[in-house]
């Protein structure tokens, strides 16, 4: 049995030439050649349609920015979920240490009290602290990076940081909802200073947005969280 030559199949598929009688006979009997011809025909048909799609205009750039910003949000979600999960795991067995922690907290308050008094002696205004947080570095950040946060009664947040990694962008401070870390409030940036005071937007629910987050933001004009968190800590009153 003489199968059809590939060149010949292509010519037939492109309808450039007609089947000869002997070829038709062979095609009627040979499933292999018939399949080859059918598939080449299909491909030739699709090839002709390619003209419509061969030079598609690129999608608008804003579409990419939207994708990028969604991805930034998923990264924020990815980071705290593990982070918080670990915290939850650790929190439970440590309950029996609660009295000890309370004592430690009291000690911290005592120290904080001293600071406040010092400030009064310095002639600076007295500040009532309504909540505070200790910021710890995320696993990707050097272990000596740290920070502390105090929320003052007048609605300002004082934040001290040290040993943050250098950035070509800037460091931004956020308040995240740990139960849904895609929800967040942007407070402002650290402006390369180790201590800044940022206003907390009036009406912000600090019981909900209690996770303080310091991120590294590139100068890309994208106002959403970059996903690159450096420090985190939970506010407690």
């Amino acid at each position: 049995m003489q199968h059809l030559d590939p060149d010949r199949l292509v010519l037939l598929a492109l309808s450039e030439e007609q089947e000869e009688l002997t070829e038709s006979d062979h095609l009627a009997q040979c499933a292999g050649c018939r399949r080859d011809l059918d598939e080449f025909r299909e491909v030739a048909g699709l090839g002709a349609e390619c003209q419509d799609v061969h030079d598609l205009p690129p999608p608008p750039e804003r579409l990419w920015r939207a994708i990028e910003s969604d991805i930034g949000r998923t990264r924020v979600r990815e980071a705290p979920v593990t982070d918080l999960a670990e915290r939850r795991i650790h929190r439970k067995p440590s309950r029996r240490w609660a009295p000890l922690i309370a004592a430690a907290a009291a000690a911290v308050l005592a120290i904080a009290g001293t600071v406040t008094i010092d400030r009064v002696l310095d002639g600076r205004r007295t500040e009532t602290v309504t909540a505070r947080a200790t910021l710890s570095p995320l696993p990707t950040v050097s272990a000596d990076a740290r920070g502390s946060v105090r929320v003052l009664a007048d609605g300002e947040m004082e934040i001290d940081v040290s040993n943050l990694p250098l950035t070509t962008g800037f460091h931004e401070v956020w308040l995240l909802d740990p139960d849904d870390p895609t929800k967040m409030v942007a407070l402002g940036n650290l402006s390369d200073r180790p201590r800044v005071v940022l206003p907390v937007p009036p009406g912000t629910d600090l019981n909900r947005f209690r996770l303080v987050d310091v991120s590294d933001e590139p100068h890309d004009g994208n106002a959403t969280h970059s996903g690159n968190s450096l420090l985190r800590g939970t506010l407690t009153s």
Binding site: V53, L56, P57, P58, P59, L63, W64, I67, E68, I71
Partner: peptide, 18 residues
């Protein structure tokens, strides 16, 4: 690597949109 996604977008974003 997010740049890989960008490459994929540049290469195939138009086809997906189409």
């Amino acid at each position: 690597d997010e740049k890989a996604l960008r490459t994929a977008y540049e290469r195939h974003g138009a086809a997906v949109l189409y």
